[in-house]
Computed example of a mutant assay.
Amino acid sequence: MSRRVRRVTTTRRGGASRPPFDAFNLGDHVGDDPAAVAQNRRRLAAATGLGADGVRWMNQVHSDRVVEVDGPGPTVDAADAMVTTTPRLALAVVTADCVPVLLSDARAGVIGAAHAGRVGAQNGIVVRTVEAMVRRGAHAEDISVLLGPAVSGRNYEVPEAMAAEVEAALPGSRTVTARGTAGLDLRAGIVGQLRELGISAVDVDPRCTFADRDLYSHRRGAPTGRLASLVWME
């Protein structure tokens, strides 16, 4: 029996944080008042109906480390992806330009969530997440993916050498910015990577964190808060 999968991405609106983290900051590592972050996380847990123990968070470090979780628990340390087979346990990724990658095999009852910044994407965090899901019973052809809001290629300027280096590891990611300079479109590269793995059901949120003022963007203005993208099974 296929399970119903839910995916949620937050915006800046509706929280307790003060500028420059205003208002619904869900990152606890950016210098915001811990009490405000805790209040925002409680508000998110209540809004999703999952409750305080229903969301697992990570201390993200731009790695390729995937952790399998099976129930409530503390923040997962030094990881950039999680996988679970537990219903009503949401896996959360926090971002402010990086790509949140939400994966699910509803038939097998396996979900995953990955934080794919430039370094993590280049080093294969999405591939590692799919591999971990397959170990738990998922099948690539049954996996569907949502790539959440992230900085677009038009606004992600990098040095020529960096663009070439990332393109070599993540084909399709090199692009040209709105200024005509070397840029990266990580989501385009990840889409290609997923297709190479046999995953065709991929949706991309069109929003650019740099361009959309309702979203947090580290490139637009640091320090700033973090969005959260969640996936869970009912």
Rank of each mutant, 00 (worst) to 15 (best):
S152L: 04
V127S: 10
A121F: 13
G112W: 13
T177Y: 06
A92Y: 00
T175I: 07
L102W: 01
G117W: 01
A182K: 06
R187D: 08
E157V: 12
T86H: 10
P87W: 04
P149E: 02
T95R: 05
V119Y: 11
A182E: 12
T175P: 07
R135L: 14
D97A: 03
G112N: 11
A161R: 13
D185P: 03
V134N: 12
E157A: 08
T177P: 12
A92D: 00
L186I: 08
A92H: 02
H139K: 14
R107T: 14
A182N: 08
A113V: 06
A92S: 09
G180E: 03
H115W: 03
I111M: 04
G183V: 03
T181R: 12
A161C: 10
R179W: 05
H115S: 13
P171H: 03
N123T: 10
D142L: 14
I143G: 05
L89D: 03
L184I: 05
G172Y: 11
C98F: 03
A121R: 09
I111G: 05
V126Q: 00
A182W: 13
A108V: 10
L184T: 02
V158Y: 09
G153L: 06
L186F: 10
G137A: 13
L102E: 00
R88F: 01
R136G: 15
V110A: 08
P87L: 05
S104M: 10
A132K: 14
V176N: 06
E131N: 14
L170S: 00
V127I: 06
G112T: 12
D105H: 06
A150Y: 00
A113M: 07
R179Q: 15
L146I: 06
V176I: 11
R118C: 12
S104W: 14
G124P: 03
R187L: 02
R179H: 11
A178V: 13
G109P: 03
E157M: 06
A106N: 10
L91G: 05
A150T: 00
R118N: 11
R174H: 12
G117Q: 08
G124I: 02
G137S: 15
R154Y: 04
V145K: 04
G137C: 15
A132N: 15
V110D: 08
T175F: 07
P149D: 02
E165D: 09
S104V: 09
P100E: 01
L103D: 06
A161Y: 10
A92R: 00
M133G: 13
A150W: 00
Q122M: 13
C98I: 08
L89Y: 09
V145L: 09
P171W: 06
S144G: 14
T177R: 08
A163L: 05
R128C: 07
D142Y: 13
L170M: 04
G180Q: 11
E157Y: 01
R187Y: 03
A113Q: 10
I125K: 10
T181K: 09
T181A: 07
A108W: 07
R179Y: 09
E131L: 13
T129D: 08
T95K: 06
N123W: 01
V119F: 12
N155S: 05
G117F: 01
V110I: 11
V166M: 05
